[in-house]
Each structure stands twice: as structure tokens, then as C-alpha cells.
């Protein structure tokens, strides 16, 4: 073959390559190997003539095929929604927290007075305590239960799909329906729970009207409702652990407990980290279970932060104060999450 022929084959080859793969290679070429493609294109330049009016058209056409163009266009609906309905209200709320506003009269700028009042408000301190109580009890217990459930379901028993669905059913059930049913269960005279306890000779208290027992009762309902979700995540994490580790441990004669402690838990640590961060965030923001079951409970014993924010905004018409409170909640959750991230980094298993 002559040089020219070889050159022609090369050029044809490139062209064929480009046509076969469609427009995308151009995008890749922009990132890397640009010089190479430019060189080849310039060699092939006599075959393609560029004229002025066509440059713009070609630019748009090029843009049409760029990856990032499509990324932006397809993200645009979601992005606009996010900007308008999430980001803007979050920023506006921050500005609102420095005002006093009741939705109907003009805003009054009060600086950090809302924040100062917040820390002296005994109701705020009480609901913060309730929220902490809720988190500290429901998160660890929830994680342990869902982990054990996931391990149990991972054994490959028959009917695993049924159990998975059954445990996940409470998660997708409406909180209103769940609240009504659990109110029946907790009823001191006609409820199933106290009947069950009476079989053992224990006289159950009036769960939802006792300031001591209302919060534990709501916590139990909340754990019951959410355990399926974490269980599914743990299941996914468990299935990512290679069987070979367990087989190696079997060969070394490890008991189930040893396998669990030394293989399962360490290798699950990214999953556990994710589940615990999400659970903490979720439980600080709990509202529906409390609101629907006890409406803040006897003497505010089950009133949580989000409930108090709601009350301040929509029942006492104190928008600025409620916004300040929601920002304090945001900072608390952010700090706790950062602590969790920092701890995770420190104790990296691998």
C-alpha cells in the first residue's frame, strides 16, 4: 500500500470508528487526546470545508450531542423544583428567623432576639429533651433489631420474599392508619397489650395518657414502623459480603457468634454508618407518629421539636420564632452528623 493509501485507510478508519460509536466519542475526545484528534482532523481537513454561517449551527449541533448539555436539560425540572421549593424556602427561613412575623402583618426585624428567647423557653428545653430521649432510645434499638432481622432473612430460608414484604409493609403503610391501630392496642381497658399483660398478672398502665409511658409507647410504634426499611438496607449490605470469608472461617472452625462479630459486623460498617446517620437525622425530625398518636401527649411528654415548631408557626402565629427553632434543629443535626462522620473516619476498618 502506498503512503497515501495508508493515510486514506487511517482517515477512513477514524471516520468509520466515529460513525460506529455515534457522536459521543467527540465528547471524550475533548477531554483527552484532543491534540491527536485535532491532528487527524486537520489531516483530513481538505475533505471538510467550514464556512461562517455553518459554524454557529455546528456549535449548537455540537452542543446537542454533548453529554453535559443533556445532563443539565434532564436535571432542569428537578433542579428548578429544588431551587424553588426547597432551597429558596430554606434561605428565606434563615432570614425569617431574625424577624417577628405572623403571616398577615408586616415583618418586624428583631435580630437574634428569637434565638435568645429560644434558649430561655422552658417548653423548648422540654421538647428538646423529649427529642433526645426519642433518638437515644429508638435509634440503637431500631438498628439492632433491623440488623438481626436482616441476618435472619439472609439465611436463605424458604419464603424469604414473603417475610421481606411483610416486614416492609409497615414502612409503606400510612402513619394515620398505624396510629389508629396502635391507639387501640394501647387502650388501657379494651386494648390487646394490657390484655396480654394481664395474662401474666401485670396490670398495664394507661399507656397514652401516662406521662411516664406515653413516650415509650410512641417509640415502640415508631420502631415497629421503620424497622423494615433499615432491614432492607442491611440485607443489601449483607449480600455484598463474599461467601468466601465465611467459608474460610468455617474451615478455621469459627462459631456463628465469632463469624458474626469478626466478619459480618466489620464488613457491614459502611452500611451501619449509613443507617445510623439516616436514623439519627430521621428521629430528630420525627413528627407524624407523635402528632397522630398523642398530639403532644399528656403534659407535653411526647411533644418533640418539630411539633413545637409546627405549633409556633401555625397555632401561635410566630413564624420568626418557629424559623429560628428549625435552624437550631438544623445545626444540632448537622453537628451530630459531622461527629458521626469524623468518628467513622477515625475508625476506618479498611
Amino acid at each position: 500500500m502506498t503512503n497515501v493509501q495508508m493515510l486514506n485507510c487511517k482517515i477512513k478508519g477514524i471516520k468509520k470508528f466515529e460513525i460506529a460509536l455515534g457522536p459521543f466519542p467527540r465528547a471524550f475526545q475533548i477531554r483527552g487526546g484532543e491534540m491527536k484528534s485535532q491532528k487527524l482532523l486537520s489531516e483530513a481537513a481538505p475533505l471538510v470545508k467550514k464556512s461562517e454561517p455553518e459554524t454557529r449551527k455546528k456549535f449548537l449541533k455540537n452542543l446537542f450531542y454533548k453529554e453535559y448539555t443533556w445532563a443539565i436539560v434532564l436535571l432542569l425540572p428537578n433542579l428548578i423544583g429544588f431551587l424553588l421549593f426547597t432551597l429558596w424556602p430554606v434561605l428565606a427561613s434563615f432570614l425569617l428567623s431574625f424577624t417577628e412575623w405572623d403571616l398577615l402583618q408586616p415583618m418586624k426585624f428583631v435580630g437574634i432576639q428569637n434565638y435568645i428567647n429560644l434558649f430561655q423557653d422552658e417548653i423548648f428545653i422540654k421538647v428538646f429533651g423529649n427529642t433526645l430521649y426519642f433518638t437515644i432510645v429508638s435509634v440503637p434499638i431500631g438498628i439492632v433489631i433491623s440488623l438481626l432481622l436482616a441476618v435472619a432473612l439472609n439465611q436463605g430460608l424458604r419464603g424469604i420474599k414473603f417475610y421481606r414484604a411483610a416486614y416492609f409493609l409497615p414502612v409503606i403503610s400510612s402513619m394515620v392508619a398505624v396510629a389508629v391501630i396502635w391507639q387501640w392496642i394501647y387502650n388501657p381497658e379494651y386494648g390487646v397489650l394490657n390484655y396480654f399483660l394481664s395474662v401474666f398478672g401485670i396490670e398495664g398502665p394507661s399507656w397514652l395518657t401516662s406521662t411516664k409511658w406515653a413516650m415509650p409507647a410512641v417509640i415502640v410504634t415508631s420502631i415497629w414502623k421503620n424497622v423494615g426499611f433499615n432491614m432492607l438496607i442491611f440485607l443489601a449490605g449483607l449480600q455484598a459480603i463474599p461467601e468466601s470469608y465465611y467459608e474460610a472461617a468455617d474451615i478455621d472452625g469459627a462459631t456463628w457468634l465469632k463469624k458474626f462479630r469478626h466478619i459480618t459486623i466489620p464488613l457491614l460498617s459502611p452500611t451501619t454508618f449509613f443507617v445510623s446517620v439516616m436514623s439519627v437525622i430521621g428521629s430528630f425530625q420525627v413528627f407524624d407518629s407523635v402528632f397522630l398518636m398523642t398530639q403532644g401527649g399528656p403534659a407535653r411528654s411526647t411533644s418533640v421539636m418539630v411539633h413545637y415548631i409546627y405549633e409556633n408557626a401555625f397555632q401561635f402565629f410566630k413564624m420568626g420564632y418557629a424559623s429560628a427553632m428549625s435552624y437550631v434543629l438544623f445545626f444540632i443535626i448537622a453537628i451530630i452528623t459531622l461527629i458521626q462522620f469524623w468518628r467513622q473516619k477515625k475508625s476506618q476498618i479498611y
Binding site: 395518657t209 401516662s210 406521662t211 399528656p298 403534659a299 407535653r300 397555632q315 401561635f316
Partner: peptide, 17 residues
């Protein structure tokens, strides 16, 4: 409206606690 919320909260303590 906060006053009625206060009364309910405190009376709950009286009636139930």
C-alpha cells in the same frame, strides 16, 4: 392562643400525673 396550650399542658399534669 399559647395560653390555652399552657392551660391544657398544666391541667394534664394535674389530671393524669
Amino acid at each position: 392562643n399559647k395560653v390555652s396550650s399552657i392551660i391544657t399542658e398544666e391541667l394534664d399534669k394535674f389530671y393524669y400525673d
